[in-house]
C-alpha cells in the first residue's frame, strides 16, 4: 500500500468515525505541477488526497489560532517530519489543543524545489512527476527535461535530520531511515557562505535581498509558529515598533521581528521562504539563527513534546555574559 493510500485510508476512517470534522492533506492544484492544501469533509472525497514530491505545504499553518473554521473544529492533519516539528513547537506552548487533533505522520524523503525548476524554463511548468530518483518536467510549450531528484530538492531537505514525524497518531507506511542524529551534529554548511562575508557585505546583501519585500505578510501568515498573526506587532500602530512605510529600513526590521519572534520555535521548515511571492531567501537567516541556538543550548526546536522552547525557560547555570 502506498503512502498516499495510507493517507486516504486514515482520512476516510477518521471522517467516518467522526473523530475529525475535516481532514487536511494535499491535493493536486490547477495543473499537474502544483499541489495545494486540501480540506476534506466527507469520507467519499478522500480520493482527491495525494502524496508526492510536490507536497511542500506545511499544513500545521491551518491549525494555528483563528485558522480552524469553525473555531474549535476537530481536525485531522498530515505532517511531514519538518511539519511535525512546528506542530510540536505549538503543542509545547499549548497553543493548540492536542485533544482536537488527529495527526497522520507522513515519512518523507524529500520535496522538490519547484522554484528551482521554474528557473530552468522561461515557459510555464505544467507537469512535474517523479520516479526512481528522476524528476521529469514538462512545460506548456511542450519542452521536457529530466533532473536528478537530489539536484532539485529543497535546501531544507538536503540537510534533513527528521524525515519522519516526531509526533503522530498514525503513520502512513513504514518510516524512512533516520539519519544518525546522536553521532552527527546538524550540517550548517549552507550558512557558511553568508557567515564568511564582512559586516559591511552582510549589511549590503541584506539590504539588497530584503529590499524586494512587498510586506504582503505571506511569510508571517504562512508561518505555522507565528501565532499572533492578526495582532502582529508589525502592523500595530500602538505600540509602533515598525513604521507602516515601505522602505528598506522598515522591510529589514519587519523581517527581523519575524525572525526573533519565532526564535526557539522555528525549525527552519522553510514555509515562509516558499510563500514569499518575490522569492526572498528568508530560510537562510532563520537557519543561521537556529545554528546559534544549537550552539548555545544544543537545542533543536520542536523535537520533543515534553520540552519547552528555550527562550521560555532559564537555567541558573547558563554561562552567558560576563
Amino acid at each position: 500500500m502506498s503512502r498516499q493510500d495510507h493517507i486516504r485510508e486514515f482520512a476516510a476512517k477518521a471522517l467516518t468515525e467522526g473523530r475529525v470534522d475535516y481532514f487536511i492533506g494535499w491535493k493536486q492544484g490547477h495543473n499537474a505541477s502544483e499541489v495545494v492544501p486540501a480540506f476534506v469533509k466527507e469520507a467519499a472525497a478522500v480520493d482527491q488526497l495525494v502524496w508526492n514530491e510536490l507536497c511542500h505545504h506545511n499544513l500545521v499553518t491551518f491549525l494555528k489560532r483563528n485558522m480552524p473554521d469553525p473555531a474549535g473544529a476537530k481536525i485531522g492533519v498530515c505532517v511531514k517530519g519538518c511539519d511535525s516539528r512546528t506542530l510540536v513547537a505549538l503543542l509545547q506552548e499549548e497553543l493548540i489543543d492536542r485533544d482536537r487533533l488527529y495527526v497522520v505522520g507522513v515519512p518523507c524523503d524529500g520535496i522538490i524545489d519547484r522554484r528551482r525548476l521554474e528557473k530552468e524554463f522561461a515557459d510555464e511548468i505544467v507537469a512535474v512527476s517523479c520516479s526512481d530518483g528522476r524528476v521529469s518536467v514538462a512545460t506548456r510549450k511542450g519542452n521536457e527535461k529530466e533532473f536528478a531528484k537530489e539536484e532539485v530538492l529543497l535546501d531544507a531537505c538536503t540537510r534533513c535530520r527528521y524525515p519522519n514525524a516526531v509526533y503522530a497518531d498514525d503513520v502512513a507506511g513504514p518510516p524512512v531511515p533516520e539519519p544518525d542524529r546522536d553521532g552527527a551534529k546538524p550540517d550548517w554548511s549552507d550558512v557558511a557562505g553568508y557567515e564568511s562575508l564582512s559586516d559591511d557585505e552582510k549589511q549590503a546583501t541584506l539590504e539588497k535581498v530584503y529590499s524586494a519585500c512587498v510586506r504582503c505578510f505571506a511569510c508571517i501568515h504562512v508561518c505555522p509558529v507565528c501565532v499572533c498573526w492578526d495582532k502582529c506587532v508589525n502592523r500595530s500602530r500602538q505600540p509602533e515598533l515598525v513604521e507602516q512605510k515601505v522602505g528598506t529600513k522598515q522591510k529589514l526590521l519587519f523581517q527581523m521581528i519575524h525572525m526573533f519572534h519565532v526564535a526557539g520555535r522555528c525549525p527552519s521548515c522553510g514555509a515562509c521562504d516558499r510563500a514569499c511571492p518575490v522569492e526572498i531567501p528568508l530560510y537562510l537567516l532563520h537557519r543561521k539563527m537556529n545554528k546559534e541556538i544549537y550552539d548555545m543550548f544544543g537545542f533543536e526546536p520542536g523535537t520533543k513534546l515534553d520540552e519547552k522552547p528555550v527562550f521560555q525557560l532559564f537555567d541558573v547555570n547558563d554561562r552567558f555574559g560576563d
Binding site: 502506498s2 503512502r3 498516499q4 491535493k27 493536486q28 492544484g29 495543473n31 499537474a32 499541489v35 472525497a45 482527491q48 495525494v50 502524496w51 508526492n52 514530491e53 515519512p107 524523503d109 507537469a127 512535474v128 512527476s129 517523479c130 520516479s131 526512481d132 530518483g133 521529469s136 531528484k149 507506511g173 513504514p174 524512512v176
Partner: peptide
C-alpha cells in the same frame, strides 16, 4: 471542481518513489 487528475494527465496518479522502495 474536485480535482480530476485524469483530465490533466497528472503524474500524481503515478506511484510516488517512496512506494517503489516499500
Amino acid at each position: 471542481t474536485a480535482v480530476t487528475p485524469a483530465a490533466t494527465g497528472a503524474p500524481t496518479g503515478a506511484p510516488a518513489p517512496t512506494d517503489g522502495k516499500e
